[in-house]
Structures are given as C-alpha cells and as structure tokens.
C-alpha cells in the first residue's frame, strides 16, 4: 500500500462521474422524469422540490446520464460565493500573468455552461440572492460574464440547469428571488414514494444482504408511520429505510442469526433516533418506543 500522496491521488482519481447504480424509475419518479424530459426538450429549466432524501439528486444524475451529457453540481448555502460558481484566479499566477485566462480556474458552473453539460443547482433556495443573480445572464441570454477577465462567453446550446430544493417552509431556506423563480419554468414536486416503489429502492440498495420481503415491509411500515404522524415535524426519508435495513442485516450477519424483530427494532432506534424531529413538546424517545412496540412488538433489547 503506497503512502506517496501523488500516487494515491492519481490512483483514486475518478474520470467518469456517472453513478452507474440503477435507480427505480417508476411511480412519481417516472412522472417526474417524463416532465423533466419534456421540459428539457422544450428548452425550459426545471425545478425539483421535495423533502430531504426524496431522491432528487439521484434522479438528476440519472437524467444527465441518459442525456449523455457531463454532470456538474454545486450545493448552495450562505457560504457559497460567486467565485465558487464562476471560478477564481490563482493569486500566484496572477502575479505572473496578470488577470489573464492562464491564471483563471473556472468553477463548475462555468465548465458546465461552456461545455454544454447538465448543471444541478442543489439546495438553490439556501443560496444568497447576490450569488443567484450570477446565474441570470447564463439562463436567459445564454452568455456568461467573468468580471476580472472583462469578457463575455457564449453558453453552449446544450447547457441545461436543474434546480433542486427543499420546500420553502423548511428551516434555513429562503424565498427564491423572483428573477430566478421566473426563469425556472417547470416545477416538479417529489414527495416520499409509494410503498411499492420505496420497497424496490431499498431492495436495490441492499443487494448484498438477504432480507425477506416481510422484514422490508416492517421497515417501511416504521418509516411510513413517521411520515403520517402529526407529532412528527421532520419524518424519516428513504435513506432511513435503507439505513435500517442495512444495519439490521449487517448486525444479524455479525451475530450469526436471522434478522428478527428485535434486531430491526435496535437498528431502527439507532437510525431514527436522530433522523426524525418531533413537534415541540413531544418526546422522541417515547414516540419511538411506542412506534416500535406497535409495529414490531418490541422496542429492542
């Protein structure tokens, strides 16, 4: 095993960012995909809105892969600045070349816009308005301005933007500036999938484990309850379903026994313990205990 940093980096470098994992394209995901495809063909940018863990990013990645285009993304937050999108200058090269293209490192948005890729603006409504305004010219005028180079660059006709975000009532989100909102013309809402679809998703992510259908149903039953219970403010996502299934299977494998309700309960406690958020005044521990007993007949060891 090498400890040479350059060799390590060279050996681990990813040249193909496409995620070749199969995704389950049915139910709401199929409809969303069709809507995105129509929007793309019509030259309309699309916004995907859904709670955490609903599968927005996976869907976008699949979409880009099917279109055969490069895929780049930025996850927006208060800390993202225009230079994180457009690019920045290497100061040491600026000393040498001045403000010239040789000193410029393009950011992911610039790369995507110029080479005609699919750009995912993840958590767009967590970004600062000042930063979002940087996108406007590229979206409408199909040209991109780099201030320090004092030059406009033509955005490729193949460039396509997808905006993904949590609903505006979620903590930490902002209302999108109307200029940006008006340029994203197609809005697709994703919720948590129907049971059958989620079952397929969980199964596809737990391929190496042998989990029975009945056990997976119990996992989904637990997660489903958190989504329908009025006491829960933030319910469990698909990631939680996958997490509970994998953890229970791995634990059983380690202990050399079959997956039973006790194992599921212990896994669920560990995963859901921080995955869900209760309404003010409601105890998460009491809720989980009651839920586990109700669905599994046990709250674990």
């Amino acid at each position: 095993m090498t400890t040479d940093p350059l060799a390590l980096l060279s050996g681990a470098k990813i040249t193909d960012l496409h995620d070749h994992q199969d995704i389950v394209l049915e139910g709401q995901y199929r409809e969303a995909y069709d809507a995105m495809l129509d929007a793309h063909n019509a030259g309309l940018y699309v916004g995907l809105i859904g709670p955490v863990g609903a599968g927005k990013t996976a869907l976008c990645r699949k979409f880009a892969e099917d279109l055969g285009k490069p895929f780049d993304w930025v996850t927006f937050s208060d800390l993202v600045r225009p230079s994180n999108l457009i690019g920045s200058f290497d100061p040491t090269l600026v000393f040498k070349y001045g403000f010239a293209p040789e000193a410029f490192s393009p950011g992911p948005f610039t790369i995507s816009a110029l080479q005609g890729g699919v750009f995912l603006a993840n958590e767009l409504n967590r970004g600062d308005e000042y930063v979002l305004n940087v996108l406007l010219d590229a979206l409408e005028e199909r040209k991109l301005y780099v201030p320090s180079l004092r030059s406009w660059y033509r955005v490729s006709d193949d460039f396509y933007l997808i905006a993904a975000m949590n609903p505006s009532e979620h903590r930490g989100t902002r209302r999108l500036p109307s200029a940006v909102q008006d340029r994203v013309k197609v809005w697709v809402e994703l919720g948590y999938p129907k049971r059958a679809t989620e079952l397929k998703i969980v199964r596809s992510r737990c391929g190496e484990y042998e989990l029975g259908a009945a056990q997976l149903e119990l996992v989904l039953e637990l997660v489903d309850h958190t989504r329908n219970d009025p006491a829960v403010e933030r319910p469990a996502s698909i990631r939680s379903s996958i997490g509970i299934a994998r953890l229970a299977a791995e634990r059983s494998k380690r202990l050399g026994k079959a997956v039973d309700n006790t194992t599921l309960a212990e896994a669920a406690k560990l995963v859901l313990g921080q995955a869900i958020l209760m309404k003010p005044g409601r105890s998460r521990e009491k809720y989980l205990e009651s839920l586990l007993v109700r669905v599994l007949g046990t709250a674990g060891a």
Binding site: D34, D38, A39, A42, G43, Q181, D182, R183, K185
Partner: peptide
C-alpha cells in the same frame, strides 16, 4: 402568490409541443 409573466404563456406551449413529440 405569484403573478405569471409572459414567460409562462411561452413555456406552456413549448412544454406541450415537447410532450406531443415524445
């Protein structure tokens, strides 16, 4: 909440055309 702009009246037929072609 939002007042639709001219872009909406343009976007709808474009989307429908793409849907029809597909």
């Amino acid at each position: 909440v939002h007042t639709p702009s001219l872009r909406t009246s343009v976007a709808i037929p474009r989307w429908l055309t793409a849907r029809c072609l597909r």
